[in-house]
Write a protein that binds this DNA or RNA. Sequence first.
DNA 1: GCGAGTTCGG
DNA 2: CCGAACTCGC
Lengths: 258, 258
Amino acid sequence: MKIATYNVNGVNGRLPVLLKWLEEEKPEVVCLQELKAPQEKFPEQEILEAGYQAIWVGQKSWNGVAILTKDLNTEVIRTALPGDESDEQSRYLEVKISDLTVVCIYVPNGNPTPGEKYDYKLKWLERLDAQAELLISSGKPVIITGDFNIIPTESDVYKPEKYIKDALFLPEVRTAFQNLIAQGWTDGLRHLYPAETIYTFYDYFRKAYERNAGMRIDHFLLSPELIPHLKTGGVDKEVRGWEKSSDHVPTWIELENL
Amino acid sequence: MKIATYNVNGVNGRLPVLLKWLEEEKPEVVCLQELKAPQEKFPEQEILEAGYQAIWVGQKSWNGVAILTKDLNTEVIRTALPGDESDEQSRYLEVKISDLTVVCIYVPNGNPTPGEKYDYKLKWLERLDAQAELLISSGKPVIITGDFNIIPTESDVYKPEKYIKDALFLPEVRTAFQNLIAQGWTDGLRHLYPAETIYTFYDYFRKAYERNAGMRIDHFLLSPELIPHLKTGGVDKEVRGWEKSSDHVPTWIELENL
DNA sequence: GCGAGTTCGG
DNA sequence: CCGAACTCGC
């Protein structure tokens, strides 16, 4: 089973690119972030015509997450991250696909630092930590994937020194990621390729893609029982060069015998 | 010689449509209105590659006029309508192509009425009247063409009763047009087709094109010596049905032996 | 309805 | 740099 994550940065503006990529790669499960569309403006019809069912949590202007599945029975578990009833932002979607739990997340960016937005990111990551602990304790197969807005290590960004004060790279944020790993989760892509440079995001400005000025911020966290099934993964880097592409790159893993 | 006028409603947004139409119709002279582009953002390169030289008067956000010519020596005569030095709007361009003077105009819309904008339209038309008088008195061949924002008669709009208080149809404005005719100018298309319904504009709203709810507001005024050369003309109505079309229709005349 | 600008968020 | 929403003009 091929599972992908793709921060589309506007699902309607991105529709031609998204459909072309789906047609070429045909992943069974796709987690999307930054829909930037209200619930009623998600392009359900076009997605259906491409052969995918969709579950989504929209929001006007910002955020928004979705999970697309191809011929798979999908059950919604929750559409919000527990821990703060007053949180209005659409950043979390948890579904069950047969015995596999798939969690699609869009972690707050958190810039500028310091500030309210950074505080919100840290609180959101605390709530994610609690929810991840519950999920991994279940002993069932779970994937948490999406745009984490976290650069896990110095090896995951083209010039770490430029990001010392950035909300994607500050120690507290990297520690939050390590805490998840300490719970027992595995960073899927890094597990497959321990020493490779892997970038999932290239800024729109200053020709970042052409300069290979990227970072790895979209991740797959796998619960232990999934590791034996993990055989390959990667980034569809060329999509970043397409006309009207997102600033993120589609990222995927393949699980065998699942 | 085929001479066309086309209010493009944004020359950059309209570029694919404009280039396709130029490729199909190949007019020797094209007057454009509503460039909606500052001087430095006119797509000169793409127009050159399509085989046209261009002279243009840009303006940020609104207005803007241009004259494109195919393999013809073109000399700029003036880039503003005389009579008000303080007028900042780019609505007038006068050039000489061999012995023919071509004037491209974008008359102010003037709505709502009454109001400042209507007053500005009337004053602009007075200045145009003075300039037209000068031009016709020269005894040389002159064409004044463009978006006049004037519906000359009841026969030039689908439902005249809807436009009684409209700045495009108020008596003062129609009189301004008749005054030009009284100077000796000929309304080229009406001269060719005295009894036909000819529309050059269909609103974007309420499916005006599908309902044939149009009006004739783009005109060719010809000085007397040109009349013997005028053999045919028309509107490229189908262009209005193209993807991402302007609300105006390209309109043209053909002058023989010129 | 649509194009171009601006503002916001990234 | 880019997407979405809003404003303005037509």
